[in-house]
């Protein structure tokens, strides 16, 4: 691999990743009421990878991003971004990373063009110099360039924020929940844009609470309560799922769920769209399940075996 190129530092950083996180700990609050945001998180993101951090609200995603973008100091552990230590060499990191916070944080009273120009200037570059990188994204909002950023729609704001985060051609791009609160079409468009950026060789770390977006990443880390549950490719995470999984639908869904939780071969049962997903113990018997359902009056129950998706895996990991 390109080990020699990346390990240009004399004492050698561990691994050849664009981002190497080791045992990061962060807590908030005073002694009385401490909130553990991150409890020893470690992972490594390879150069040019699209890495997803998937987890529910409050899992610690934003804290992790703020630490990696040098906005927050960790209470323990260390991390290296593009070969620079996040604490000692924060200045170097700020030149080389792009960060798009979860909340729209551009100047609402400046126009689209002024915002972009402003961020280009403070990174000591010009729009022209890196226009090729943002062209596909910026061209979609260019016709509104005289409009103030605060007056843009959600999807356009997001495109502008991405343009501003990219204007200095960052090596690593951090996107904190970029698709939260964005409609389905814009979400899809956004992920297409990310794919193009990845093709340009930019390492992308993206966090999201949406499980369906996990499958679009090269690798994902599932995070909950400040701890990583699993770091792997989406396929491998799904591959590790080793229990029979059923989808089930009946007339009275709530009663169905409560009844099924009483059944001895059922490990977990949770709603999933119009079905319930039913995690069974290995070696369950379908006839027994059906007669159990009949006994409890779920006559027209519809049961079929399904392939697990990333959300099922997450649910399973959370249970353990």
């Amino acid at each position: 691999m390109e080990k020699s190129f990346l390990n240009k530092k004399p004492n050698g950083s561990p691994g050849d990743g664009a981002v190497v996180v080791e045992n990061i700990v962060k807590h908030y609050g005073s002694n009385k009421e401490t909130v553990q945001a991150l409890r020893g998180v470690s992972f490594e993101v390879k150069k040019g990878e699209m890495f997803g951090i998937i987890g529910p609200d409050g899992a610690g995603k934003t804290s992790l991003f703020r630490i990696l973008t040098t906005l927050l100091l960790p209470d323990g552990g260390s991390a290296i971004v593009n070969g620079h230590d996040i604490v000692k060499e924060y200045k170097a990191i700020r030149k080389e990373v792009g960060y798009m916070p979860g909340r729209f944080s551009l100047y609402q009273d400046l126009t689209v063009a002024e915002n972009l120009e402003f961020f280009a200037t403070i990174f000591n570059t010009t729009i022209e110099e890196n226009y090729d990188l943002i062209k596909d994204i910026y061209s979609q909002i260019e016709k509104f360039k005289e409009r103030r950023a605060g007056k843009l729609s959600g999807g356009m704001k997001q495109k502008l924020a991405l343009s501003c985060a990219l204007i200095h051609r960052p090596v690593v791009l951090f996107l904190d929940e970029p698709t939260t609160g964005v409609d389905v079409v814009s979400r899809k468009e956004f992920w297409d844009m990310l794919k193009q950026l990845k093709a340009q060789g930019i390492t992308i770390l993206v966090s999201t609470p949406y499980m369906d977006e996990a499958g679009l990443c090269d690798r994902v880390a599932l995070i909950q309560n400040g701890q990583l549950l699993s770091v792997d490719t989406p396929q491998a995470i799904i591959g590790q799922y080793n229990r029979p999984l059923l989808a089930i639908k009946a007339q009275q869904m709530l009663r169905l769920q409560n009844d099924l939780k009483q059944y001895e071969d059922v490990e977990d049962c949770y709603p999933f769209g119009e079905y319930h997903h039913l995690v069974m113990k290995a070696g369950y018997r379908e006839e027994q399940l059906r007669s159990f359902l009949e006994q409890h009056g779920h006559h027209s129950a519809e049961v079929c075996t399904i392939q697990p998706n990333i959300e099922d895996c997450f649910m399973a990991l959370m249970k353990n």
Binding site: T69, T70, L71, K91, R94, K95, V97, Y99, P101, R103, F104, S105, L106, Y107, Q108, F119, I122, F123, N124, C164
Partner: peptide, 11 residues
Amino acid sequence: IGTIEQINVTP
């Protein structure tokens, strides 16, 4: 409004 965050990650 959070713009200081965006400024703080710049050099």
